[in-house]
């Protein structure tokens, strides 16, 4: 991924047990903040044909 120029952090991994709802909330918050900081994924998203 990073080798190809997709920003590190666009892809996140974690390990949460089914009993760890607090950790889940924590990680969702972290992941969202990290990706928000990166800004929109403008590179890889397929551009739709622009219709006038």
């Amino acid at each position: 991924m990073e080798h190809m120029g997709i920003e590190p952090g666009r892809l996140q991994f974690s390990w949460i047990s089914s009993a760890e709802s607090t950790k889940f909330v924590e990680v969702v918050t972290q992941v969202t903040a990290a990706i928000k900081a990166l800004g929109p994924n403008s590179n890889f998203a397929k551009k739709m044909a622009e219709v006038a």
Binding site: F13, S14, W15, I35, N41, A45
Partner: peptide
């Protein structure tokens, strides 16, 4: 996912 417009991907086990 990224191609279809997601801004990030999160994989969690």
């Amino acid at each position: 996912a990224l191609r279809e417009g997601a801004d990030g991907v999160w994989v969690s086990g």
